[in-house]
């Protein structure tokens, strides 16, 4: 009869959706616990790899409620007329937070998360590597200089919460120093003794 097969699909933004994304039940929260565990694992992987692909940091429950969000390509599948429901997304986000793959941002609410497709430790390395390779060690930089640099960098758009965490990690090994500057916060990166 109908011989549908479930295949990977390339989105308009060039992201390759896994074949499970074309399966209608993937968009329903599963009552069977072990099935839901594997589906949540698939969703988590999908969300993080898509975020990395598009350099997205924040995911909100309301992204599943409205149209036109950055996340439409994965939260919806118009080819099979399915979408992830807000309650289901909220469940997945809670699971990601519990596994330290995201944190609620801002704190004390559960409708928006900051995604850890890189951990703060990894961001710390990226940050230090960037300062080093662009010859900005020992220079005082404002946070604005870092997340909106004149030359595109991997740090463009990095949320300040993540930036602060990364700087704090570098500060522990004396590879960064926070400094109060006139118009807010600043930082100076140092070569430090641990050159990893």
């Amino acid at each position: 009869m109908a011989s549908t097969s479930f295949s990977p699909y390339k989105t308009a933004s060039g992201f390759l959706l896994p074949s499970i994304h074309s399966a209608p039940p993937f968009f329903t929260q599963q009552p069977n616990l072990s099935t839901q565990i594997t589906h949540t694992a698939h969703w988590t992987r999908l969300i993080l790899s898509y975020a990395r692909h598009r350099q997205l940091f924040l995911l909100r429950v309301e992204d599943a409620e409205t149209s036109g969000s950055n996340w439409d390509e994965i939260l919806k599948n118009e080819r099979i007329n399915r979408k992830l429901l807000p309650t289901h997304l909220s469940f997945i986000l809670a699971d990601m937070v519990s596994k330290n793959l995201a944190i609620y941002e801002p704190v004390r609410q559960t409708r928006s998360v900051l995604l850890y497709w890189r951990t703060p430790e990894e961001w710390a390395e990226v940050l230090h590597g960037w300062a080093d390779s662009t010859g900005q060690l020992n220079t005082i930089l404002t946070f604005y200089d870092i997340v909106e640099p004149p030359v595109p960098s991997p740090l463009v758009g990095l949320p300040l919460t993540m930036l602060r965490k990364a700087i704090a990690i570098l500060a522990k090994t004396s590879r960064a120093q926070t400094i109060a500057v006139a118009d807010g916060e600043g930082v100076r990166f140092l070569s430090g003794n641990t050159t990893r």
């Binding site: 011989s3 549908t4 097969s5 479930f6 074949s19 399966a23 209608p24 039940p25 993937f26 968009f27 329903t28 599963q30 009552p31 099935t35 007329n81 399915r82 979408k83």
Partner: peptide, 21 residues
Amino acid sequence: WLDAQDEANGVAYWIPSAMHW
């Protein structure tokens, strides 16, 4: 697997071992 957004019946069941991946 459960599909609660089925157009025809509202609810449908999918047997992953019978799906062609």
